[in-house]
Each structure stands twice: as C-alpha cells, then as structure tokens.
Amino acid sequence: MNIATWNVNSLKVRLEQVLNFLVQNDIDVLCLQETKITDDKFPYESFKSLGYKSYWLGQKTFNGVAIVSRYQSTKTSYNLYGNIEEQKRLISVTISSEIGKICVVCVYCPNGQMIDSEKYEYKIKWFDKLADLVKNELLKNDHLIVLGDYNVAPKDDDVYNSEICKDQILTSSTERKSFNKLIQLGLVDAFRLFKQPEKSYSWWDYRRLSFKRNMGFRIDHILLSYSLKEFCKTCKIDKSLRGFEKPSDHAPVIAVISNNLYE
C-alpha cells in the first residue's frame, strides 16, 4: 500500500497536480491538508474517475482536510471527537487492507503563528487533544497511521539552520514536546526508519527564494503504530513537486506499507 500526505495549499488551484501525483505514484491512500474549499465544492467526481473514494471536511478559504482512497472506509470520523465547531483540521477513516484493518488519521495541526500568542496557545491545546485521540485509537485499533502537516520540525536536523530557527515557531521546545508526546504513546516516524539524504525538508516558504536555497523545514510526517513498523518498506519526500509552476509550498511524503517480504 502506497500512502501519502500532502498539504496542497488549495485543492482548487492544484487539482490537476494532485490527480497526476496519484497516477504517477500509484498512490492507494492520500491525505490532503489545506484544501481550502467548502464541502459542496469538493471535486469527488474527479477522484472517482480514477477509482478513488473520497472523504472530506471542508472550510472556506482556510484549513480543510480530505482522504482519497482506493479502499472503502468502514468508519469515518471528523474533527477532534466530532466537535463540528472546531476548525476543520482532522478526518479519519478505517480501511481493510492486505495487512488488516488500519485506522488512518489525517491531521492539519495549527501553525501557532508566533510564540506566546493566542494562536500558539491554541496549537498546544490542540496537540493535547490530539494526543488523547491517538491514545484512544491505539487502544481500539491493531494498526494506526497518523499523517499530515504537523507544523513542527521535531529535531534540529529537520531545520535548514537550527541556530537561526532556535526557539522560533515550528521549532520551540514546547512544540517539540507536544510532538514527542505523540511518539511516546507508541508511534514511530516512518521517515526516520531509513537512511535519508541530508537536509531533507517538506516545506519551504514562498519568500526569499527559500526552495532554491533549500531553506526548509521537515514538518509533514507519517507516524506509524509499532505494529506497522516492520511493514514499512520505504518513506521519502518527493520534493520535485515543489519545483512545479504554481506549486504548493509543501512537498508530499510517501510511505510504502506492505507485508510482502520481497518489496
């Protein structure tokens, strides 16, 4: 199973890029963030034409998450504990795969904007609620994947310049503790299961020629329950899409999950 996460920064703008990505990479499950469209505008017919089912939670102009999958969802949940008033940042599906039932949780974690701001406080509280959700899902499911845009660079290796970025938004010790709390519940960072190229990032600001200068952050992650660790064959960032004309500021992260010993 090829599973991926991608903050597309407007699905309306980048629909063709997403459709091409699905086909070219033989993706089975794709989690999208920042779709930025209301539910009635979601292009489910475009995905259906390629053989995908769609599950989405939209919001005009901001946020929005979706999962497109070759597998039918047997259980779909929206937001943290079904809070419909919450910002549209989380959707989960349960699918039956060749490995067994897997709960897939797509997250778009708050950015936080600035240390000590109200939005930063909201971010930390949101992570606390996410940790509660993950803890419960690990108890209920044999397999769990929590993937998306976390807006946290977990370690100094995940930042283009750790000294310049020290204790800034995305890298503060409080944000990193919130991320590590998820890991400590029983998850692993799929990307770090494998030897990776140095200076591997998934997000580059549109400003200051950040992509060309590789001034990036690794803030998009695929976290797996321990039960899936042995089944993860590869995990990579496809930064080629960041070089497209009118790209998202994020690149997709792709993991291969398989019980085939020869893959």
Rank of each mutant, 00 (worst) to 15 (best):
G64N: 04
S77D: 15
I99M: 06
W56N: 07
S92Q: 12
I84L: 10
G51A: 01
S96L: 15
S97F: 14
G51S: 00
Q87T: 01
G82A: 09
I84K: 13
I84Y: 10
G51M: 03
L57V: 02
V68Q: 01
K53A: 01
T94A: 11
T76D: 12
I102D: 01
I95V: 13
S97N: 12
S92P: 08
G58F: 05
I91S: 07
I102Q: 04
I102C: 10
G64E: 01
Q87E: 13
S49D: 06
E98T: 12
N83V: 09
L90C: 07
N83R: 12
I99Q: 08
I91M: 09
G82F: 14
V93P: 10
V65Y: 04
G51W: 00
G82P: 05
K53E: 03
Y81L: 12
S73F: 06
T94F: 10
I84V: 12
V68P: 03
Y78M: 09
W56I: 00
K88I: 00
G64L: 02
S92V: 03
V93I: 15
K75M: 11
S54Y: 01
Y71W: 05
I91P: 10
Y78R: 15
Y55C: 00
L90R: 10
N63T: 04
E86A: 10
S69Q: 05
I91L: 14
Y78E: 07
Y55D: 06
Y52F: 11
S97R: 11
S69A: 01
S54A: 06
I67W: 05
L80H: 15
A66W: 08
R70W: 05
G64R: 02
L50M: 04
I99D: 05
E85T: 08
S97M: 09
A66P: 03
N79L: 11
N83C: 11
Y52E: 00
K75S: 14
N83K: 12
Y52C: 00
L57T: 02
S54K: 01
L50G: 06
I67N: 01
I95H: 07
E86Y: 09
N83W: 09
T76P: 13
E98L: 07
E85L: 12
T61M: 12
Y81T: 12
V93Y: 10
L80N: 07
R70N: 04
S54V: 00
S49G: 04
I102S: 02
Y52W: 06
K75P: 08
E86M: 11
I91R: 03
G58D: 06
L90I: 01
A66T: 06
L80M: 11
K88M: 05
Q87D: 10
Q72Y: 11
I99G: 04
R70I: 00
Y55G: 02
V65W: 10
S54F: 01
L80P: 06
